[in-house]
Amino acid sequence: MKIRVRYFARYRSLVGKSEEELEVPDGITVGELIEFLKERHPELKNEVFAEEDDLADVNVSRNGRYVKFDEALQDGDVVAIFPPVSGG
């Protein structure tokens, strides 16, 4: 199935584009997509997503709604990933 992934904030600088259309396995979950993206964009691996279990370091929205990592995606979904910022 095809989905569209949008990158925000520093993810965008790292990946070098604002969005892309990707062919992903049917029924892929948000968590699996993150792993998929790390493979596709190794620059995201260390810099952005924390080690192994620490996926919560990235925020994900699906079709404009905030989602958890166990949610399964559907064909045509638009997924946006953005890092939480913490400065003041």
Binding site: F8, A9, R12, S61, Y66
Partner: peptide, 18 residues
């Protein structure tokens, strides 16, 4: 609603949180 702002690329995006 979470308002995300990217002033480098002029993006104001609202993500629904519910």
């Amino acid at each position: 609603k979470l308002l995300l702002i990217d002033l480098a690329l002029n993006i104001f995006d609202v993500v629904e949180l519910k």
